[in-house]
């Protein structure tokens, strides 16, 4: 340090070593310093307003009372408000009315996609493509009917199909004849069943559930509609139980469906979604639209 600055008029800081080694001072621009102080002020203000300093377990809360969870909840409210206008309209409509309105249908389908994923896809597949033992929802073959009212009934109340095990009722040759007949029916769209097969079908009580025409219609109503009890349509190429064909048919005839105390019996149970409050009426309505629109709704 020099007592008397030997380099007057120069912008040195007065720090001089070895006679002439000195530090010159060129301060940062004033606007830069102003920005610097302003940013410090900003930090102070910010820490007062928002959560910041870690004290113990929690940060200081900040006087604005802001928190991430509140922000999230606000976001949820916004979404709910956006949905409300659709949900309100859907509430007062039937599934068929919703389907007739392209905008509402689009909303119902988009919103039910999640419900379907949570509740239905485990058995019926993510796109309604079915699984072994669980019906395909994207085709037009419906055990209980593909109209919206029927679909709603199925989802709300669940379904449990029943077919007697015929292992003690029918003889082995009879079972084989019937199984062959089922395969013939399936391959020929109902036109090529053998006479013996038809005879057994009619006399052994099968028509009670599968209908006179073997198409699953127990009663055909004059208005073109029909009543079913959930028995399969035997006149199309679609198999209720995978993989289909002679062995499948024989197994089903021998062991039936949902027969208690019989290990080999087919299981075919659709749980109840309506009663225990698992799904609201509104949710079911949207699901009905979704399932109906999967590809085969009637």
């Amino acid at each position: 340090m020099a007592e008397n600055n030997p380099f007057p008029g120069e912008n040195n800081t007065g720090h001089i070593w070895d006679d002439n080694l000195r530090e010159l001072e060129n301060p940062p621009p004033r606007w830069w310093m102003m920005g610097f102080w302003a940013s410090i002020l900003f930090v102070v203000g910010y820490t007062i307003l928002y959560p910041s300093w870690p004290v113990g377990q929690e940060p200081t809360p900040g006087i604005m009372g802001w928190s991430q969870i509140k922000e999230y909840e606000k976001g949820l409210e916004q979404v709910a408000a956006m949905r409300a206008q659709f949900e309100d309209r859907i509430g007062g409509m039937t599934a068929d009315q919703i389907i007739a309105d392209p905008g509402l249908k689009q909303y119902a389908v988009a919103s039910a996609k999640v419900l379907f994923g949570d509740n239905c896809s485990a058995c019926h597949g993510s796109g309604g493509q079915g699984n072994p033992g669980y019906p395909v929802l994207a085709d037009d073959d419906w055990l209980y009917g593909g109209k919206t009212a029927k679909i709603a009934e199925t989802i709300t109340g669940g379904r449990k199909g029943v077919m007697t095990a015929h292992r003690t009722i029918l003889t082995e040759p009879e079972v084989e004849t019937l199984a062959n007949w089922v395969v013939q029916m399936s391959e020929s769209a109902g036109a090529g069943g053998s006479e013996e097969g038809w005879a057994l079908f009619r006399t052994k009580g099968c028509t009670a559930c599968h209908g006179q025409q073997a198409n699953g219609h127990v009663v055909d109503l004059p208005n073109g509609e029909f009543v079913t009890v959930g028995a399969a349509n035997l006149t199309d190429g679609i198999w209720r139980f995978e993989p289909g064909g002679y062995d499948s048919a024989k197994h089903t005839i021998l062991n039936g469906v949902n027969q208690t105390g019989l290990a080999e019996t087919r299981n075919a149970v659709m749980p109840v979604f309506g009663a225990q409050g698992k799904l609201s009426e509104q949710d079911i309505k949207k699901l009905v639209v979704y399932v109906h629109e999967l590809g085969g709704g009637k």
């Binding site: 597949g125 796109g127 493509q129 395909v136 994207a138 085709d139 349509n233 199309d236 190429g237």
Partner: peptide, 18 residues
């Protein structure tokens, strides 16, 4: 093209794609 399922068999014996 719908991927799940890629196609379905309909009761009239035709194949349907969505």
């Amino acid at each position: 093209h719908e991927r799940a399922p890629l196609f379905v068999l309909l009761s009239d014996g035709s194949i349907q794609n969505k």
